[in-house]
Design a protein around this nucleic acid. Sequence first.
DNA 1: TTAGGTATGATGGTATACCATCATACTAAC
DNA 2: GTTAGTATGATGGTATACCATCATACCTAA
Lengths: 221, 221
Amino acid sequence: MQKRGQSTVSNIYDELRQAIAKGELREGEQLKQAAIGEQFGVSKIPVREALTMLEADGFVTLTAGKGATVNGLSAAEAEEIYLMRIGLEPLVLRHSLPNLSVIGLARAESILHTIQSLDDITQEQWHMLDHEFHTTLYQGSPHERMKRTVKLLHDNLARYFAIYKSYGMSFRTESDAEHRQILEACKAKDGERACAILNQHLEHGSRKLQTFLQNGERRNE
Amino acid sequence: MQKRGQSTVSNIYDELRQAIAKGELREGEQLKQAAIGEQFGVSKIPVREALTMLEADGFVTLTAGKGATVNGLSAAEAEEIYLMRIGLEPLVLRHSLPNLSVIGLARAESILHTIQSLDDITQEQWHMLDHEFHTTLYQGSPHERMKRTVKLLHDNLARYFAIYKSYGMSFRTESDAEHRQILEACKAKDGERACAILNQHLEHGSRKLQTFLQNGERRNE
DNA sequence: TTAGGTATGATGGTATACCATCATACTAAC
DNA sequence: GTTAGTATGATGGTATACCATCATACCTAA
């Protein structure tokens, strides 16, 4: 029953979350406890706990007597998530910067290199590396709660990135350029500047996503 | 967070959260599922779900094989919560302001009157009214996710306010004065100014709480 | 033919039961 | 007397079982 180290519940949680992020589970789809339990070879109990956690994290909605349904996506929600990122991430970065080690900066740099060296990169990979880059810069911050919230926001955004065939190469190059600028400011320990660019970076990301959400070609439908 | 009707689970969740907020359950205390279940006349299953939610909301920690323990309080966490409020609430207020109805403003004003008219007010009452005031001003915002997060932050802060015999009348009067200034700026639809004062208001709140956490007299211990 | 009601099946919610694990205490041996 | 090992009880985790509720489809009656 017990998979080494990881608990049953978090396994189910991870699998379901990935399935939702990848769009394998469509919006509005009902998640049936018995079916999921059978799929994982467990009973409904751990499934219910995983669903409860998914609700807390904003991926599904539990309605009494009707079970869990996958939350829908909307341009408004995407904008809101970016707004929260704008509110929180510059603060995290600013508090992280003084404690950011040379090693951390080097790791961030290597992530940027990885992104640029990979010519043919999937949307998923790119988004993961993007997340990794930001997270690395935040590692100096002692604010675990904020970082957890930020991670959740990134995870929720992943769904939006996933539903597009191509997110536009132009966006990526612009984004990567901003990443580099942020990194340079961090190296120079210029918190003011780093935050300003990060802010801009997020504003740009938000706007780009909005235009895609209005004009872009959906992957599923 | 979780509404899910007035189900058994949310009842347990609410009761436990209140008990934690009031300090009836001390930090580090182990929450035994069987005992809680018996107390509510239910089995462990709904209790476990309530505990899962409490963990998601930051009140307890679930460790595999050891159950749930009440999270500790720390000056660092209090500061972090205020930092998140500073990051988020001005944004919410700014987006709420254009949609804020006259009725909403009137309600906020009446809350201020209530606070000032009540001479002998408990810490709990004051904190609830404070929360109510802020929430009312945010009601014009369409950003449900942000508002949910902000509410969580307020709820977590409630624990810190609860552990002190008196939170200091001087703080309250200063805070109330700032409330009024915020309200006036909102009435004038001056978002810039309202946000600036709100920011200051939160900074002050954070600093006051910090000094109390370092010097204040604990209620329990 | 249509509408309404009932029956049946599916699904969610919760209690009971069982097992694994951890902590604690007691006993035995050095 | 102290320490280590084992046994027992407490507790958490999960499966099974049962019940309530909701949806759907079929049947009956107007």
